[in-house]
Design a protein around this nucleic acid. Structure first.
Length: 251
DNA sequence: AATTGCGTCAACCGCCTAATG
DNA sequence: GCATTAGGCGGTTGACGCAAT
């Protein structure tokens, strides 16, 4: 029985299932001509027999430029786990702090790694072990980066490699709030690692002191409670950059 | 070689909210 | 204020590939 799907066409007329390369080409061409948005008009303009919802999802999760392919890096995993401890299943919110990664990807990562027949406390232990292992791996890489005083950062929408001073300069020169947010969120991946080393796990401890009663809620040490209540991720990243900059002065 | 079990991930579904008329 | 539409979000499904048996 046909029913309206909310995006302007009866569901029996839409194609479903995996996208073909030809369909991808049509969608890419549509976005090139008309820009993102107005997904419900894709079918009319391009001849694609896909719902607006399907088109949007395909674009956002697979075709959109700038998407990263391949396995998540240790620092991305760390950010996901730490932010999940703060916000729970707010996948799209978490994804904003991982440029090039989609909410769907993050959701899949979480389900794959941490949602399998384990009790909350087992789950918590598993998270800790996994992150500890990956961090040990990554610390070695970061130490090498530190020896060269090198990190990655956003420079005029390009990913660049340079010194901490370069990154700080780019951050302060970013003109729009979008640019600043983008720059900061990417640098957050480095910050997470740098912070770990410089502060000997203060940030991680703050987030990873999870409780058994409420496994998704961080349990704050008394002295951390006030800072948690006023926690702002953007501010945290900005402050961290400033702090790291001061720590690396004269290095 | 065939079957089974399992992990991964693209895609779908239903619900919600904001915008618009 | 209400109905409709577009877009976004989180939960779930199912096809596929690979490893184990």
């Amino acid at each position: 029985m046909a029913r309206m799907m909310g995006w302007g066409m009866q569901d029996q007329e839409w194609r479903k299932g995996p996208w073909t390369p030809a369909e991808d080409d049509l969608l890419i061409e549509y976005v090139r001509m008309h820009g993102e948005g107005r997904w419900s008009s894709v079918a009319g303009c391009s001849g694609l027999k896909r719902s607006g919802k399907s088109c949007r999802l395909r674009w956002v999760n697979y075709l959109r430029p700038g998407l990263k392919k391949g396995q998540l890096t240790p620092q991305e995993e760390g950010i996901i786990i730490e932010l999940h401890a703060l916000w729970g299943n707010k996948w799209s919110t978490i994804a904003r702090y991982l440029p090039g990664r989609t909410d769907n990807e993050i959701k899949n990562y979480w389900r794959t790694n941490f949602k399998k027949k384990t009790t909350p406390s087992q789950n918590q232990e598993k998270q800790k072990l996994k992150v500890a292992f990956r961090r040990d791996q990554y610390k070695q890489q970061v130490k090498e980066m530190m020896n060269n005083n090198v990190l990655t950062y956003i420079d005029d929408n390009n990913i660049s490699i340079g010194t901490m001073d370069d990154a700080i300069a780019v951050k302060s020169e970013s003109t729009t709030s979008d640019q600043q947010q983008h720059s900061q969120s990417l640098m957050a991946q480095d910050v997470a690692s740098w912070w770990d080393i410089f502060e000997d796990g203060l940030w991680s401890e703050f987030l990873w002191n999870l409780g058994n009663d409420h496994p998704n809620q961080p349990v704050m040490m008394e002295q951390s409670l006030s800072s948690f209540e006023t926690y702002d991720p953007k501010q945290f990243i900005s402050d961290s950059l400033d702090r790291i900059a001061s720590l690396t002065k004269g290095k």
